[in-house]
Design a protein around this nucleic acid. Sequence first.
DNA 1: GAGTTTTTTACAAACGTTTGTATATTTGTG
DNA 2: CACAAATATACAAACGTTTGTAAAAAACTC
Lengths: 325, 325
Amino acid sequence: MTTITDIALALGITPSTVSRALAGNPRVKEKTRLAVEKKAAEMGYERNFVASNLRKGRSNIVGIVVPRVRREFFANFIGGAEDVLSSAGYNVIICQSQESLDSEIKALKALKNYRAAGVIISHSIESKDGNHIREIMGDLPIVQFDRVFPDLPGAKVVGANCDGAYQATMHLIKKGYKRIGTIAGYMSCMAFVERLAGYRMALEDAGLGFNKKYVYPDSILYETGKESAGKAIADGCDALYCCGDYAALGAMDAAREAGLRIPEDIGIVGTANEFWADIMTPSLSSLGQHPFDMGQAAAHAFLDGRTGTEIIPMELHVRQSSNKQ
Amino acid sequence: MTTITDIALALGITPSTVSRALAGNPRVKEKTRLAVEKKAAEMGYERNFVASNLRKGRSNIVGIVVPRVRREFFANFIGGAEDVLSSAGYNVIICQSQESLDSEIKALKALKNYRAAGVIISHSIESKDGNHIREIMGDLPIVQFDRVFPDLPGAKVVGANCDGAYQATMHLIKKGYKRIGTIAGYMSCMAFVERLAGYRMALEDAGLGFNKKYVYPDSILYETGKESAGKAIADGCDALYCCGDYAALGAMDAAREAGLRIPEDIGIVGTANEFWADIMTPSLSSLGQHPFDMGQAAAHAFLDGRTGTEIIPMELHVRQSSNKQ
DNA sequence: GAGTTTTTTACAAACGTTTGTATATTTGTG
DNA sequence: CACAAATATACAAACGTTTGTAAAAAACTC
């Protein structure tokens, strides 16, 4: 592999000049720079990032840490972020925490060890606060998205969870459902807390009143969603706003097993707008985020060194599962 | 950050001894090694991989390059590979080619620049041969999976595509379908060629004969699948073996739009066993791979430096879309 | 054209590790 | 105890960049 020393030798100049020339440093003469660039191309030179990173103490790597890549939301978020970051000259490393704190810590440490330029993260369910993130990453830029710790400084990109859940719940109310429960997520996670707040606000605004009994938390998977929905049905709920589509799917199965018709006897709205929500029968109403836009926004926040919180609107997709006539 | 020099200084020994001690080199005395390990832990030392990689000329990074992470198959494959590789002390970098040759080349170059220890790859649809892979990666170990170039040396892990497609087609035959077409993939890609071969073999074995007219290639997306299925229906097909579930979904919609009942009037089998195949109405029969196992197999092939081709059986999941009574 | 400023290049050290060779220490042998 | 062999550590160079400082070359100034 060609090195800058090879180029320097070939041109009778020093490696430092070559390095500066390739970096576009104004300290090298235009003519020299062109000669270097030509020779570099000729010799097929490619910068050794490992050496460069060692010397500079930081790399052009940005790590993206997500619970799982196969979720519609995270996959599309990654797409949006990759787009922006790679055209800005960064290399993106994708890490999965698999919802485990240990894996998340491992991934962050690896990124730190590789001197990542920064990290874009949506924390695992097991993470109760952001101390480990700050501790491991030190003063490296951290952009949080979707699941964020508000006390952790740095940029944040989130969906309008409260507003979205308000919309979803209000939609159920307008469809005439009376006893609306919620299959909620983990209260250690902001996003879920906000959705619960939106749900509550809608009920109160509509004069239906909020009843803690109809909140079934810690249910984001098919299994837990189904189990919680079973309880909700026993408790007499005639509609459910679910914090996730997998939980909503579980809820639909619970309803069917209880002999209820969807949406006539029970209305169901999920969250995330997974691909399959649209193709099931009945199709699943879902509160969608804009993952691609959020990915781009997070990447820009990183690039510009921004530090505030950006809120991206959510969008309710009304389908059959809540469309009572 | 603590370095080996800090540890050496603290213990009154040299960095080289510290390095060897931490690497478990038998040239250092047991007693010294223990002292070093203790001190290292005490000082919170973590090896600087960048420096280590520079000196060694290679890293502990393994790159996994896939068309897209959100496909059930690839996501689960990555899970299996990550499992094995990270317990073997490797760091995994996930790259998406988005089915584009350019992105694939870019990802491979980045991996090479970071001196990856090897790469596990399923090539993009745009890649017509493996020359770019070999050229960029040089003599680094390459493990191919699912979509492989047979002429590229190195380990390969593939599904039993021919056998699987044979099973799927034979299943349709046994269900009494007579004019079975196939929504096929790209013939530049081994996996799809093999599936076509299995389809053909089943028809011939059953004495139904193979008719090129009923092969509709280059259709792996919803849109292309739907379009091709439209033609197939016009051509009188009463069953379709589709090389992918997204294409199969398109085929189902084409059938519905043509006023056909599934599975009574037309039987449909997909490939990949996506999550949603099971939850639609009618549920979609699908030929599934074992992505997690394949990921583990690929990781082991890399670790052991194996070089042959491993074939993982496929499994037909019979559901409503092909279950004619 | 001597002195000053500005531009351009060279020199050298540094990033933190690994590893071949040399030296020091310990152990074993007669 | 002298000498050889084996073991353990130290020394120093190297990986390929980047970057502060010094030196050389060019461009001005009077």
